[in-house]
Design a protein around this nucleic acid. Structure first.
Length: 597
DNA sequence: CAGGGGGACT
DNA sequence: AGTCCCC
């Protein structure tokens, strides 16, 4: 009865304002292969990478063929199994991007998860359509009776129609079948997506979220709890979702750390506030090749040369120019330690990639550029592997990162900097605490100047802490020692010029007093642990991991509520200790500061 | 020869 | 740079 009361509470509150669709392509690689060769449709089909069957069509599944099964095992189960090589992801990538593009026409908020899954936040589209609605399309998980007054049932119902349209369009335009899950958050959308397979869709209303979570046989099935976290939980005798709910947060925190402990605890109740993030272009493009044994430098060169050739082609299709290259190596480890990799990276001048004769990267680079890159690659390789001694490698990888847009103008590095700084007023407490430490150091050598202006660009993406850090340090380095003797690139020069024009110094080298200004800017009106649903998602000044919607928080089981509050008190104290004394003395506690404000 | 990617956090 | 997560 207690549980029922809780789920009633979940239904009666006014917080399920989002509508999220999760789209999962049925046996993706196998479908692509069957499109390429329709004759395969009637056979049991497996897609093979090296010695592994990574996926199979539904005919093969009837024989018991499963994901990540060894080829030998698969052939034992099903001798007539047809195997197709799938190491080259080109065709899968292409189809994947067509699907994502199609989905983007429904909402710009599309987040890719691997090549075959997408989250779409259709909240806005739903509110446009809220006028005309009919019954639910597809299955409903749990009871469909209407208990919630907030309108989530109508919204999710509309969501189910949108999902149905998406699937129909994906099928008619691309010839691909898929499943969809419709829910008010990503966790539930993804979990419920797999309930009816293949080529079907399932909607879940908030009052059934508990039931869905408790239906899982292991916490490992919760997205976000991976191999490692699962092992740690096992050591606490936690294997199912109920175990996780019943384990007190303090014990969890000891083994997982505060952030993860709170996150998994919330997940066990079906709570997931994470936003659907627009995926955009990848931040890195890489290739790997695994093999039994390589122990000669000449073989290494050969492999890298092939990888580089293929990688440059991908790079050309992407159209951007990378700023950095990374080499990855896996050394043979007779202990069965799981694939331990080592990598080294260094910056590379953009000029290497720009051909004077042809603007397109699709054309291969000049032999000279190619040589240069191979030189850099082998140099990095030698940092990982001492070739004067015998070595045994089982994998080589190559990746380009740190992309910049090629065009100037809006995406030029200068305007990028401006934007970056303009959003720095939106920070979470960790960042501030973090930053304070560094500012104490920085302020000794930089002259003080005015405080930051809050620009109107509220909708700009929040800079990552890493980025903040990088730019914080940058103005103080006249010239960064370049790893491979790459001539300092034009962009670096640009950075130096800009920084000397005090654009950055203004913000980044303020005297200590400005820390207080930043704290004051936040103007928290309530307990930071709770937010109102009206509040914008991206302006989390106070990104405390268990900060939940006020109404959700009220409805939580009392034990969970208390645990969250207690754990937060402890964490807060830790964070406070990071703030320099000058700022700290002005306030008795962080919470008090924010609440009394 | 347990694949081949990619992203976030530390 | 490494570890963890996801597919």
């Amino acid at each position: 009865m207690e549980d029922l009361a809780n789920s009633m509470d979940f239904c009666s509150i006014n917080n399920h304002h989002r509508t999220i669709i999760h789209i999962d392509i049925d046996c993706f690689y196998a479908q692509v292969e069957m499109i390429k060769n329709p004759a395969l449709r009637d056979c049991p089909l497996g897609v093979q990478q090296k010695n592994i069957i990574v996926t199979s069509n539904y005919i093969a599944r009837e024989f018991g063929i499963q994901k990540c099964m060894l080829v030998t095992e698969g052939l034992q189960l099903c001798p007539q199994l047809v195997l197709v090589k799938g190491e080259d992801l080109q065709d899968y990538r292409q189809m994947s991007s067509k699907i994502t593009t199609l989905l983007q026409s429904y909402s710009p908020l599309v987040e890719k998860l691997g090549l075959d899954e997408n989250f779409i936040d259709v909240t806005n589209l739903v509110s446009e359509r809220i006028e005309d609605l009919k019954g639910v399309n597809g299955f409903v998980y749990g009871e469909a009776s209407e208990k919630c007054e907030c309108g989530c049932k109508s919204r999710l119902t509309i969501g189910s129609h949108i999902a149905s349209e998406m699937r129909r369009e994906i099928n008619s335009v691309l010839g691909i079948t898929c499943c969809a899950g419709i829910a008010h958050n990503k966790l539930l959308a993804k979990l419920v997506c797999g309930v009816h397979k293949p080529n079907q869709q399932t909607t879940i209303f908030p009052c059934s979220s508990s039931e869905l979570l408790l239906s899982l046989t292991s916490v490992r099935e919760i997205p976000g709890i991976g191999l490692r976290t699962n092992e740690i939980l096992q050591s606490l005798q936690i294997s199912n979702v109920l175990d996780l709910r019943n384990c007190n947060l303090t014990s969890l925190q000891k083994v997982l750390g505060y952030d993860i402990a709170v996150r998994v605890k919330k997940l066990s109740y079906g709570i997931d506030d994470s936003p659907v993030k627009q995926s955009g272009k990848p931040q890195s493009i890489g290739l790997e090749d695994g093999f039994k044994k390589i122990c000669l430098e000449s073989e290494v060169k050969e492999k890298f040369s092939t990888l580089l050739y293929r990688l440059l082609k991908l790079l050309g299709e992407d159209g951007r120019v990378p700023g950095s290259i990374r080499v990855t190596v896996r050394k043979y480890d007779n202990a069965r330690k799981y694939s331990h990799r080592e990598s080294r990276q260094c910056n590379v001048a953009a000029s290497v990639f720009i051909n004077k004769t042809c603007d397109s990267l699709k054309e291969s680079l000049s032999p000279k550029s190619n040589e240069k890159l191979m030189g850099i690659i082998m140099n990095l390789f030698h940092k990982i592997v001492n070739i004067s001694k015998p070595f045994h490698l089982t994998l080589l990888g190559l990746a380009f990162t740190k992309f910049q847009e090629r065009k100037t103008g809006k995406s030029s590095i200068a305007s990028f900097l401006t934007n970056d700084i303009s959003v720095q007023s939106v920070l979470n407490l960790r960042n501030i605490a973090d930053k304070c430490e560094r500012m104490e150091v920085a302020s000794t050598s930089c002259s003080p100047s005015g405080s930051i202006e809050r620009s109107g660009s509220e909708s700009e993406p929040e800079p990552s802490p890493k980025k903040t850090r990088k730019f914080l340090y940058f103005p103080r380095c006249k010239k960064r020692p370049s790893e491979e003797g790459d001539e300092s690139s034009p962009n670096k020069k640009l950075l130096e010029v800009d920084s000397s024009e005090s654009l950055m110094l203004q913000d980044l080298s303020e005297p200590e007093s400005s820390i207080e200004n930043k704290l004051e800017e936040s103007e928290m009106e309530e307990d930071p642990i709770i937010s109102t649903s009206k509040e914008k998602q991206n302006t989390d000044f106070f990104e405390c991991p268990h900060r939940v919607d006020k109404e959700v928080f009220k409805a939580l089981p009392p034990e969970l509520k208390n645990e969250l509050l207690e754990a937060w008190e402890v964490e807060k104290t830790k964070m406070l200790s990071k703030i320099p004394n000058g700022a700290k003395s002005k306030q008795k506690s962080i919470t008090e500061y924010f609440i009394t404000k």
